[in-house]
């Protein structure tokens, strides 16, 4: 039985996929805490679709996928951040307009010019078959950079997420902090897309922090728990996907969803009360004068 469970580790593609899924799960779990607590859960879904536009464009132009789609994703993220900070429209509307337009552009480009050999099925639903050692290194670099960003800006990120107006008044460069977070988020989604796919990457940003929120009332513990839960879901999901012969993206998400259901049931009313507030926004919604 154990031999059977360890058999996929004989294959290099699986070892790479497992490493990417575990690292990507941890990365999305870590950065997802800020996404969820800022009430921007929809951004993961939106940005992954926006990056699909860049994916299509870079494929047609013959530009490196990571550079092309990465630049596209970061531009979309900064555009959303800029529109949201100006408070002309809400963050949900800004995400909806910018990312769906980008996704539609990607689909139009594919319809007009076709593809150049890249698998758009893999982009949409994820695949571990094409994961190389370079991809593992890329996810590792983005994970390490994001962890360092959070470690060295911990208080500023916390203050900006919890109380942006007061943070701004206290001298925290909230615009810079939000920009850094958006760049890290776009990079995280970009490197995660290959395993999880455009349509499912959002779940890895939302499920681990939501489960972690049900288990703790402390921000520091939520960050740690969410990272571990994300990594665990990636690891278990990837192994299950091999043994069940199902795509990696859906399996990882279903593992997370099952964990959510279990914790939701086990923590009872207290957990549900905590989770109910994860998407709440506060003062910034009210332009008090």
């Amino acid at each position: 039985m154990i031999d059977e469970m360890l058999r996929p580790l004989d294959y290099e593609f699986f070892r790479n996929g497992l490493a990417v899924a575990t690292l990507a799960g941890a990365l999305c779990g870590l950065i997802g805490v800020y996404v969820v607590l800022k009430g921007m859960s929809y951004i993961g879904h939106g940005l992954s679709h926006a990056i699909f536009g860049g994916f299509a464009a870079s494929a047609l132009l013959g530009v490196n996928f990571v550079l092309g789609a990465g630049a596209w994703g970061i531009a979309s993220a900064l555009l959303i951040n800029g529109v949201t900070r100006r408070r002309v429209i809400g963050s949900d509307a800004a995400i909806g307009v910018i990312t769906t337009a980008s996704f539609a552009l990607g689909l139009t480009l594919v319809a007009l010019f076709g593809t150049t050999g890249l698998s758009f099925d893999a982009a949409l639903f994820g695949s571990i078959l094409g994961v190389s050692g370079g991809d593992v290194a890329l996810v590792g670099v983005v994970s390490a950079a994001t962890a360092l960003l959070i470690f060295f800006n911990y208080r500023s990120l916390l203050f900006t997420t919890f109380d942006p107006e007061v943070a701004d008044a206290t001298g925290v460069h909230t615009a810079r902090i939000d920009t850094l977070l958006m760049v890290a988020l776009a990079a995280s989604i970009l490197v995660t897309m290959q395993v999880l796919g455009v349509t499912l990457v959002a779940a890895t940003l939302v499920i681990p922090p939501t489960v972690a929120r049900m288990l703790t009332n402390s921000f520091a513990r939520m960050l740690a728990l969410s990272t571990v839960i994300g990594a665990g879901c990636g690891f278990v999901g990837m192994n299950l996907s091999y043994h069940l012969d199902v795509q990696s993206g859906p399996t990882i998400v279903l593992v997370g969803a099952t964990l959510f259901a279990c914790v939701f049931a086990m923590t009872g009313a207290r957990g549900r009360q905590r989770a109910s507030g994860v998407a709440e926004r506060f003062g910034a919604l009210r332009a008090a004068r």
């Binding site: 911990y154 208080r155 402390s218 905590r274 709440e280 003062g283 009210r286």
Partner: peptide
């Protein structure tokens, strides 16, 4: 700020809430 504008569901302890205002230290 007005306490009515505070997000009371945010996962934060009293210590974490108070210490966040301290500037000058970048570490977690």
């Amino acid at each position: 700020p007005q306490v009515e504008t505070v997000n009371w569901s945010f996962p934060i302890s009293v210590f974490e809430c108070v210490i966040m205002a301290r500037r000058g230290r970048r570490l977690a």
